[in-house]
């Protein structure tokens, strides 16, 4: 399954929501649990640029396809942040550049060392390390699609649900890129498969864990995936990851949820 990067770049666009009736939030405001989950999602989307940084410090940025994808992906995620911030704004929750800066500064040294760690690892391991990034990215994007679709289904809100579906639709293209890159690279190299399996098993955590308070992570995971339907969704993600070359038997998403006492 080849990913057509030119076609993706040419059709990459910011998510639109101006045609949705946001006045619906006045008559039918979102409950507190949903706003808290949206706040988390909004933060994660705006922080994509920080993940980008982690990806770029290793040799992956040299490749033309990766370069094009990262540029478009990053911008799409920024706009997801903007759209979600607008929903939150309708509920009196302000997410501006200063609030974002404050939350990034709170990460302090843990965050500052992240690119350093990545860069050293990436430069020692070289090419095969890109397979880890791509598989990791695929796991994250599969989770993101599932999370947006779950929230859309849970809320069935006339303004929120279509917006989340649109965001999820864009995320499916991100999945396609990461998964096709991961497959290609994992097929080629035994070392890449071993490294990736090790990294996913030992280090993978739900998207946003590194930039959020643990209780917020737990809230979002319970809210979206703490039911039978949620667990079924989680297992679908794990099944997708397990289908990547050399990743059979992995259940990293369900494991991460169980560690937090979330899974039903």
């Amino acid at each position: 399954m080849a990913f057509d990067i030119d076609q993706y770049a040419e059709t990459s666009t910011e998510v639109t929501w101006q045609d949705l009736d946001f006045d619906a939030f006045d008559a039918d405001p979102l409950p507190e649990v949903t706003l808290r989950t949206l706040r988390y999602m909004c933060n994660v989307e705006y922080h994509t640029v920080c993940y980008l940084r982690d990806l770029l410090v290793t040799p992956s940025h040299k490749e033309r396809d990766v370069n094009a994808f990262m540029t478009m992906w990053n911008r799409e995620e920024y706009w997801h942040g903007e759209a979600l911030a607008d929903v939150l704004g309708r509920h009196g929750i302000t997410v501006d550049y200063d609030a974002l800066k404050a939350s990034r500064l709170k990460l302090e040294w843990r965050d500052k060392l992240a690119p350093l760690r990545q860069s050293i690892l990436g430069n020692i391991v070289g090419e095969d390390y890109i397979a880890v990034h791509m598989s990791w990215g695929a796991a994250n994007e599969w989770s993101a699609v599932a999370a947006y679709r779950r929230l859309a289904a849970l809320e069935r809100h006339p303004a929120l649900s279509p917006l989340l579906q649109r965001i999820a639709q864009q995320e499916t293209r991100h999945v396609a890129f990461y998964a096709s890159q991961a497959r290609k690279r994992l097929e080629k190299s035994g070392l890449a498969r071993r490294l990736t399996k090790l990294a996913l098993t030992k280090a993978w955590e739900p998207v946003g864990t590194s930039i959020s308070e643990p209780e917020d992570v737990k809230h979002v995971m319970s809210h979206l995936f703490g039911s039978e339907e949620g667990l079924a969704e989680i297992r679908r993600i794990d099944a997708n990851i397990a289908k990547l070359p050399g990743m059979d038997g992995l259940t990293i998403v369900e494991d991460a949820l169980r560690r937090r006492g979330v899974a039903a």
Binding site: Y46, V49, C50, L52, R53, L56, V57, H61, N67, M70, T71, N74, R75, Y78, Y97, D98, L100, K101, R104, L105, P115, L116, S119
Partner: peptide, 23 residues
């Protein structure tokens, strides 16, 4: 993107106005 890479490992990455522009 190469420039972005050396900029984003610095404190510039925390400045959300800067990163919004750079994106």
């Amino acid at each position: 993107l190469r420039y972005l890479r050396s900029v984003l490992v610095t404190p510039t990455h925390s400045d959300a106005r800067m990163t919004a522009f750079l994106v």
